[in-house]
């Protein structure tokens, strides 16, 4: 099953390897990972998307909690949450496809952030489904390169994930 895990960690060197080690040691692949500072510069948020056996993942979550540098662990899959990621896509743009690309970008509320002689670079934000849908439309038009940020996620409503100890 797919899990979206949000972690609050100490913003210091070595934390990422401690966390990654718990996944790699059990043969779990990290599908996406996103790390950045929070409002408190001594704390970082990590969003990890992974798939695996629920019982083993429960053990991984406990082990994550046990790490001295980890302040908080939340498995968002048990909650109602919003999830976004951004992609940059470089698409081949010919005289025949330019119009079509722009239409698709428009429908997906994306932006063209760079225009080259034969390419458009497009920026789109959304959840996994939306990004995948966009890509399935752009692929036949000629995707040259693709960079995804990995997912970030947040609980809906007034509850706060990033409050230590909440």
């Amino acid at each position: 099953m797919r899990h979206v895990i949000t972690l609050l960690v100490e913003n210091e060197f070595g934390v990422l390897t401690r966390i990654a080690g718990l996944f790699s040691g059990r043969g779990f692949n990290i599908e996406s990972l996103c790390v950045a500072e929070t409002l408190d510069p001594t704390v970082s948020t990590m969003t990890i998307v992974t798939r695996g056996d629920d019982q083993i993942l429960e053990q991984v979550l406990k082990q994550l909690n046990k790490l001295i540098s980890v302040i908080k662990v939340v498995d968002l899959i048990e909650k109602d949450f919003v999830e976004r990621e951004m992609v940059l896509v470089k698409v081949t743009a010919t005289s025949e496809t330019r119009e079509e690309i722009l239409r698709v970008v428009d429908i997906f509320r994306g932006k063209v952030v760079d225009v080259g002689a034969k390419t458009y670079t497009i920026e789109v934000t959304g959840d996994e489904k939306k990004i995948n849908a966009l890509l399935s439309l752009l692929k036949p038009l000629g995707v040259k390169e693709l960079v995804r940020t990995g997912r970030v996620a947040m609980i809906r409503g007034s509850k706060i994930t990033t409050e230590p100890g909440s």
């Binding site: 060197f13 070595g14 390897t17 401690r18 080690g21 040691g25 001295i68 540098s69």
Partner: peptide, 14 residues
Amino acid sequence: IIGITRPCTKHNYL
């Protein structure tokens, strides 16, 4: 040694 002992210490510090 920090890398080497990461999985076999409760915690380690450089």
